[in-house]
Simulated scan of single mutants.
Amino acid sequence: MALPKFASTRSFHTELRTRINQYFEESGKQMTGDFRIVLKAVLLVTAFVGLYIHVVFFTPPLAWALLECALFGAVGAGIGFNVMHDGAHGSFSEYRWLNKVAAFTLNVMGGSTYMWNAKHNLIHHTYTNIDGHDDDIDIQPWMRMTADQPRYRLHRFQHLYFWFLYCMLYISWIFVMDYQKYFSRKIGSMGLKDMTLSDHLVFWGFKALNLVLFVGLPLYIFGFWGWLAGFMISMMVTGFVLSIVFQLAHTVEDAAFPVPHATTGKLEDEWAIHQVRTTANFATNSKLVSWFVGGLNFQIEHHLFPKISHVHYPEISKIVQQVCDEFNIKYNNYRHTRTAIASHVAFLRQMGQAA
Score class of each variant (00 low, 15 high):
residue 336 H to G: 04
residue 251 T to V: 15
residue 3 L to I: 06
residue 241 V to K: 03
residue 177 M to C: 01
residue 143 M to H: 11
residue 236 M to Q: 13
residue 100 K to W: 07
residue 270 E to P: 13
residue 173 W to Y: 10
residue 150 P to H: 03
residue 23 Y to I: 07
residue 176 V to I: 14
residue 269 D to R: 04
residue 70 A to P: 09
residue 60 P to E: 11
residue 90 G to Y: 05
residue 37 I to E: 00
residue 87 G to C: 04
residue 129 N to L: 00
residue 213 L to I: 15
residue 273 I to Q: 06
residue 42 V to N: 10
residue 124 H to V: 05
residue 327 F to W: 11
residue 14 T to E: 15
residue 336 H to T: 15
residue 353 Q to P: 00
residue 118 A to W: 03
residue 284 T to V: 11
residue 129 N to H: 01
residue 232 M to I: 08
residue 305 F to N: 10
residue 15 E to V: 06
residue 73 G to N: 10
residue 317 S to G: 06
residue 344 H to W: 07
residue 255 A to L: 04
residue 319 I to H: 07
residue 133 H to S: 06
residue 124 H to E: 08
residue 239 G to K: 05
residue 256 A to Q: 12
residue 10 R to C: 03
residue 6 F to M: 10
residue 116 W to K: 12
residue 117 N to S: 06
residue 208 A to L: 14
residue 145 M to T: 14
residue 114 Y to A: 12
residue 347 F to S: 08
residue 184 S to F: 00
residue 45 V to G: 00
residue 204 W to E: 13
residue 64 W to D: 11
residue 189 S to P: 01
residue 355 A to R: 13
residue 177 M to T: 12
residue 264 T to P: 14
residue 26 E to N: 15
residue 135 D to F: 00
residue 137 I to L: 13
residue 348 L to P: 11
residue 203 F to P: 08
residue 155 H to Y: 05
residue 7 A to H: 14
residue 160 L to K: 11
residue 4 P to Q: 13
residue 2 A to I: 03
residue 349 R to P: 04
residue 263 T to F: 00
residue 279 T to P: 03
residue 82 N to H: 11
residue 3 L to Q: 04
residue 138 D to C: 00
residue 271 W to R: 05
residue 162 F to Q: 09
residue 270 E to M: 01
residue 326 E to C: 12
residue 218 P to S: 09
residue 120 H to G: 09
residue 38 V to P: 00
residue 135 D to N: 12
residue 44 L to V: 04
residue 218 P to Y: 05
residue 335 R to C: 07
residue 257 F to L: 08
residue 143 M to S: 08
residue 187 I to P: 00
residue 326 E to F: 03
residue 256 A to T: 01
residue 194 D to L: 09
residue 126 T to V: 01
residue 71 L to K: 01
residue 6 F to T: 03
residue 74 A to I: 06
residue 201 L to C: 05
residue 232 M to K: 01
residue 247 Q to F: 03
residue 194 D to G: 07
residue 121 N to I: 14
residue 237 V to T: 12
residue 314 P to S: 10
residue 54 H to N: 15
residue 230 G to E: 10
residue 154 L to R: 13
residue 104 F to D: 14
residue 83 V to K: 00
residue 139 I to H: 15
residue 133 H to D: 02
